[in-house]
């Protein structure tokens, strides 16, 4: 579904991504793990068009995303839950979800999507009229995820969904990720919590300073000595 072929990305003069190739197949949950600053978020931003690669290709269902305006990539079935949630804090929960369906004009489809999101996240329904900024961190993460689901995307990019959450909420978020995966959504997950990320994923890539250092099935990687030492604290 998503093929990233040998991309290079620069942040000003900094060569942040040095030739990375990643494939995400239909229905897969692929995790991208690595230390802070390894370039995980940069890769997701490049896929969404917020940043541009200087060379290489990004293909979604065979279509090159490199020249597609960033704000129209969502029309191709790709949704992005950004790091730090980036919900609209001065809008209500319901308005945030409505913004997730910005590209949809069919009112019926929007209300169906909203019901589906409320079904996944009953807590959001309870807080529908509350301003996004007044939600707890965990609820904001649910809102950001729910908002991305409003267009019924084929593939979901999730950036550090567990960041800053209490252990109980981390478990809750990962349960939700598994549910989404089981419902057939393809997911590319970026996480610092490598243990959790490897536990839910089918396959994974380990990223070190802009390069892939290891890749394989999530199970294999979780048992690999180097991964255990560097990321799992074993």
């Amino acid at each position: 579904m998503l093929e990233i072929k040998n991309i290079h990305v620069y942040y000003g003069a900094i060569h942040a991504i040095k030739g990375i190739t990643i494939t995400v197949n239909d229905g897969e949950l692929v995790s991208l793990v690595g230390a802070n600053g390894a370039g995980k978020t940069t890769i997701l931003h490049t896929i969404s068009g917020l940043l541009r690669a200087t060379s290489g290709e990004i293909l979604l269902d065979g279509k090159n995303l490199q020249n597609v305006p960033a704000n129209t990539i969502i029309n191709m079935g790709l949704a992005h839950v950004p790091e730090g949630r980036h919900i609209f804090s001065r809008m209500t929960v319901e308005e945030n979800l409505r913004m997730g369906a910005y590209i949809i004009s069919d009112v019926k489809r929007i209300s169906d999507s909203m019901e589906r999101v409320y079904h996944h996240f009953p807590r959001l329904k309870e807080r529908a009229r509350q301003l996004g900024g007044t939600l707890s961190g965990g609820e904001q993460q649910m809102l950001a995820t729910g908002r991305a689901l409003m267009t019924d995307p084929k593939i979901l990019l999730m950036d550090e969904p567990s960041m800053g959450l209490s252990p109980i909420l981390v478990n809750e978020i990962f349960t939700i990720i598994e549910q989404l995966h089981n419902s057939g959504i393809t997911i590319l997950l970026v996480e610092q919590n490598a243990k959790k990320a490897l536990a839910v994923a089918d396959r994974a890539y380990v990223l070190e300073t802009g390069k892939i250092s290891m890749q394989g099935s999530a199970k294999e990687l979780a048992e690999d000595d180097r991964v255990r030492k560097a990321y799992l604290g074993a």
């Binding site: 969404s48 960033a70 609209f88 804090s89």
Partner: peptide, 16 residues
């Protein structure tokens, strides 16, 4: 309102 609050999130929503 979205653009005034958060430009990159607005782009992700599909806003020009």
């Amino acid at each position: 309102r979205c653009v005034s609050e958060d430009k990159s999130a607005s782009i992700l929503m599909g806003i020009n």
